[in-house]
Write a protein that binds this DNA or RNA. Structure first.
Lengths: 257, 257
DNA sequence: GCGCCGTTAAAACAAGTGTTTAATAGACTG
DNA sequence: CAGTCTATTAAACACTTGTTTTAACGGCGC
């Protein structure tokens, strides 16, 4: 079971660690940022301005996206002046990039995808994978902002952090492919392997991306049969059945033109 | 095979027919719009201003969405003054609504989903369905703007036309459910039926919604194995296999807690 | 002619946007 | 204390957004 509560104190701490080696963005023409890096002038427990901005920008960007979030909104929430963004990050886009990087760092540290020991049967691993993915996708409001932000980037990556996001999701997908390998007695072709992988995460992602359609098409009284556990169970069964019977269908390959 | 070319002359004509019974929006405080409906003052072939706006707003909204499109952009493209939008539609949102309605009318008239005769085997119907859906989803730039716009609304419906869009996609989904019924010897439970339907369209939609991820995860040299025909073939086989073997898996139902 | 009416045009409006300036306060150093 | 550097502020800047005003144009009946 995944913990999805977000400890804000820990977030701030990690944000601080993270900024140490990172905060020289290319457009940083401000007087702050790079330089001799004085250790916090105020020795009180109060987090400094830069940390406060990052702390508050994450959830906002995660909720409303890049263009949907204004710098004034961020600064108001953080209780700082609008000029601080230029001072510490250069411009809005650099702040966004920094936020995505922070999200990735938080996620990698605290929410690694389960790396199951090899003794459990592959069927269980598949269920666990689907279940975990669904949980993250559907958490929505309840999910930590880092998850929301990365999911948003997964849907429509910004040009700037496309590779960053790819690097983040690649190993997840890779572990799914490994599970698939364990489920298929004879190895699939490279492209078949990928397509099966996409069929699985496609079934999962649909409940997020197509959330609105699902809500419209499922009658109210059946909604209680669409819980995460039940969906994960269905997707797992559907996939296992497809993989079991896959061999019989090779003959149908060229049935259609 | 579906025709996806968009005849602009025909579009204009339909737009005119369409406006006849429709163009009294609630916020229409302008002098034009409702009233005695004078038949085109200029008898030349040149389309009037309202039609020109609608004609040009459709593709723009389809490409960039509601907030991504500015009224000035529309008016510049249509060669009309910005005030015309208030005059004919009241405001931007009403124009957008009108555009969605027009898209729906165009789609319903010209691109009905295939309503196969009952003699062809259900397996073929499934392939045709998946193939048609994929084609519409992936057409992207090449698709008529009406399809693009409705697909956009499918992903994130505007509050205003949620029911409109639902009414549009409902019968499509219904026909998929019918195909599923024909493929399963003993009838599925109501929720199972829906879940199988979602598994199918989920696999399809993923190649649109998760387009970016797919592009990142498929190595360049395998890209040619991800054409629409091949994907449709895979999804069809995957689904058929799952449905065939579905019975054996009922026992696994309560395997996980 | 004259006024009427539907239509269009240019300009202004008010409220945003990201960004930048110039000034200020507060430390620390010489 | 003066000087310098960091940090922060209020205000302005330049621009875009949707919307609205005001005036002018052009055909029409009288």
């Amino acid at each position: 079971m995944l913990r999805i509560a977000c400890n804000s104190t820990r977030t701030r701490k990690l944000a601080n660690e993270f900024e140490q080696g990172r905060h020289t963005s290319r457009k940083n023409r401000g007087r702050g940022g790079d330089g001799k890096m004085t250790i916090h002038p105020t020795t009180s427990g109060e987090p400094d301005t830069k940390t406060r901005i990052l702390d508050v920008a994450g959830p906002l960007f995660a909720r409303s996206g890049f263009t949907g979030t204004t710098v004034r909104e961020i600064c108001r929430a953080a209780g700082v002046n609008v000029a601080s963004i230029k001072y510490y990050f250069g411009d809005k886009e650099s702040l966004y990039l920094e936020t995505v990087r922070l999200a990735r760092a938080l996620r990698a540290d605290r929410y690694p995808f389960p790396d199951w020991s090899d003794d459990s049967p592959a069927e269980n691993k598949l269920f666990e994978f689907v279940s975990a993915l669904l949980r993250r996708l559907m958490a929505g409001q309840a999910a930590p902002w880092s998850v929301q932000l990365l999911m948003r980037e997964l849907m429509e990556p910004s040009e700037a952090c496309r590779t960053l996001v790819a690097a983040h999701f690649q190993p997840v997908f890779e572990s799914l492919l490994n599970i698939i390998d364990q489920l298929t007695p004879q190895p699939l072709s490279r492209s078949e392997r990928l397509k099966v992988g996409f069929s699985i995460i496609g079934q999962c992602l649909h409940y997020r991306f197509g959330r609105e359609v699902v809500a419209l098409l499922v009658p109210e009284k059946l909604k209680n049969e669409f819980g995460i556990e039940q969906l994960a169970s269905h997707i797992t069964q559907f996939t296992l059945a497809a993989l079991r019977a896959d061999v019989d269908l090779e003959s149908l390959q060229n049935n259609h033109s």
